[in-house]
Design a protein around this nucleic acid. Structure first.
Length: 570
RNA sequence: CGGGGCGUAGCGUAGUCCGGCUAGCGCGCUUGCUUGGGGUGCAAGAGGUCGGGAGUUCAAAUCUCCCCGCCCCGACCA
């Protein structure tokens, strides 16, 4: 490609609405342009890089035995009602109506469609296993689009769905995808690692996310350097000890705490009740029903764990207006000892199991209770791990201190089980003629997000640093004179032809620009290899080879093509 | 949706409090000259319904009200 023939609108300054480095560089390097919030056009260079990521994904999915299909973006509402997700996923669904007033959803994912397909086309164990994948545009009515391609309303996703006869076989399919994902991200030049994950609204019971470490990520990952344990903070547990049990003390005692509505205030003079001897009582509305959650005073509730453990779909903190009629007191004086309506469930964090000599609210404004023994004095409906892990806590596997860091989620693998095959009646006959539900798994990669993650991880002050595998062009030839008859341009054309013939993706910067402009642009865009051709070195029969992330070297013109091939082939 | 901020030329911005604008600057763009190995210099130019609407006023980018869009923080997720 000649630079003047394509469109590479580089920007000297980043548009003000870009915040993080990868978003700025996507715009500055002329890879994308915004049409509206969370909606972007891919320009020629951005599209080339995107296609390369897709190619890697296709090759690895094919290698892993998956087969490519293309499902519709327009999905009838009915199948979503059948799976139950018309309700549970309603907040992210982009809805459209046709002229007959029929309602459609723009695909945010395709479990319903593929399961409907499988229900019709897969009848026998002889057809299994099968793993279908597609790379397509997905739509989510994001609450808040953010960071360019990182969280967009419209984005490109690779989604795959496996169908197996048994749980055991489904695990094998899962592990094939898990391994394929590791290869995919490695080939994209990404440092991505799998972590245990919550399954969320998609459902299922076993899941890993592939994370790219980055301060700008939207996830917190808990990990152990000693044993390799790693989990999303929404899922992570630690080996932190339960609350120490003391002598079973005196009976409960109510005491006045005027104006004290926080854990911190109760920990200070004159009360001096340490946070780890307090029971924090939270009121949540889980699927429209109020529930109480008990957490130790120095712990934080993990809402994802709470929803996952209780099976709730929609959870939110109750408002003060909801709490007062329920418990008779405002937040700050709440407890689960007295005055809890019989139909209100009480979920307590396991760390409180056996705790006594605790202090908690009295359900009376301005009063607390002490000498509370949780098992003796509170009717707990169920105990769960509900707390959020903090850095430094002992690893659940090896007891070494845990660390936490931010990361970008680029892929997610789930074992789904029979949730969708049951809802959409997808069954097969086994070798004895008995019907079973298909056992499913699903596997997503955010393709456009992966592209941005590559930039987020590969950049410096001058611009993008593409890995060779996904660079829009691998080589940028930069003649410093562009008149057709000039020696520099003649040589540039020769390199261009030779490298192209060898299958190298090469761009020739034929713009009549000053050297500084060309160098700056090639570094901003981030081509992995630049061949500089100028009079000074040409006089010595040399050209300049400049890897984007390495030192410039002078090289004999006749050796240049070979040297480039060496860099490309490693 | 809650909280915060911002909308002035393709991009970055000054001016907005305190009305007087014929809207200024840098980058980019066009033309000419210049320069020719790290965003060259000089000159001339094109480009703006100051997000939209209504109002106040002799006069509105500036004040008031309504609407729209965008960004950031939170809840959602590939």
């Amino acid at each position: 490609m000649k630079w003047t023939q394509t469109l590479i609108p580089t920007l000297r300054e980043a548009p003000a609405d870009a915040e993080i480095v990868s978003h700025k560089l996507l715009l500055r390097a002329g890879l994308i342009r915004k049409l509206a919030g969370g909606v972007y056009t891919f320009l020629p260079l951005g599209l080339r890089a995107l296609r390369k990521v897709e190619k890697i994904i296709r090759e690895e999915m094919d290698r892993a035995g998956a087969i490519e299909v293309l499902m519709p973006a327009l999905q009838p509402k009915e199948i979503w009602e059948q799976s139950g997700r018309a309700e549970t996923a309603k907040d992210v669904l982009c809805k459209v109506k046709d002229r007959a007033n029929r309602e459609w959803f723009l695909s945010p994912t395709a479990e319903e469609v593929i399961t409907t397909l499988a229900a019709g086309e897969i009848n026998s164990y002889r057809q299994l296993p099968k793993n279908f994948y597609q790379i397509s545009t997905k739509f989510r009515d994001e609450i808040r689009p953010r960071f360019g391609l990182m969280r967009a309303k419209e984005f490109i996703m690779k989604d795959a769905y496996s169908f197996d006869t048994t749980d055991e076989n489904a695990m094998a399919s899962y592990h094939k995808m898990y391994d394929a994902y590791k290869r995919i991200f490695a080939r994209c030049g990404l440092q991505a690692f799998p972590v245990e994950a919550d399954t969320g609204v998609i459902g299922g019971n076993y899941s890993h996310e592939f994370m790219v470490p980055a301060e700008t990520g939207e996830n917190d990952v808990v990990y152990c350097e000693a044993c390799g344990y790693a989990a999303n903070i929404e899922k992570a547990t630690s080996g932190i000890p339960k609350t120490a049990s003391r002598e079973v003390g005196a009976a409960i005692e109510k005491f006045a705490t005027p104006g004290v509505v926080t854990i911190e205030a109760l920990a200070k003079e004159p009360y001096k009740v340490p946070a780890n001897r307090q029971i924090k009582t939270l009121v949540y509305i889980a699927d429209s029903k109020p529930v109480l959650i008990l957490i130790r005073g120095d712990d934080q509730l993990n809402e994802t764990k709470f929803a996952a453990k209780t099976g709730a779909v929609a959870v939110r903190p109750a408002t003060a207006e909801e709490i007062v009629p329920l418990l008779g007191a405002k937040p700050g004086s709440l407890g689960a000892v007295v005055n809890v309506p019989a139909d209100v469930k009480v979920f307590a964090d396991e760390r409180l199991q056996g705790a006594n000599d605790m202090t908690t609210g009295a359900n009376e404004d301005g009063f607390h209770l002490k000498n509370v023994s949780i098992e003796r004095d509170i009717k707990v409906t169920a105990w769960f791990d509900l707390r959020t892990v903090s850095a430094g806590e002992p690893c659940v596997k090896c007891a070494k201190p845990l660390k936490i860091r931010r990361a970008i989620e680029v892929g997610h693998v789930f074992k789904l089980g029979t949730k969708y095959s049951e809802a959409l009646n997808a069954m097969y006959l086994d070798d004895t003629g008995v019907r079973h539900f298909l056992v499913m798994g699903c596997y997503g990669i955010g393709v456009t997000r992966t592209l941005q993650a590559i930039i987020e991880q590969g950049n410096d002050k001058d611009g993008v640093i593409w890995p060779l595998s996904v660079a829009p062009y691998q080589v940028c030839i930069t003649p410093l004179a562009v008149a057709p008859e000039s020696d520099a341009m003649k040589l540039a054309e020769k390199f261009y032809a030779e490298l192209s013939a060898k299958g190298v993706d090469v761009i020739l910067d034929d713009r009549d620009e000053r050297p500084g402009v060309k160098f700056k642009d090639s570094e901003l865009v981030g081509f992995p290899i630049r061949i500089g051709i100028g009079e000074k070195s040409l006089a010595k029969g040399e050209v300049e080879l400049k890897p984007r992330n390495g030192a410039l070297q002078a090289i004999k013109a006749e050796d240049a093509v070979e040297a480039v091939m060496k860099l490309i082939n490693g």
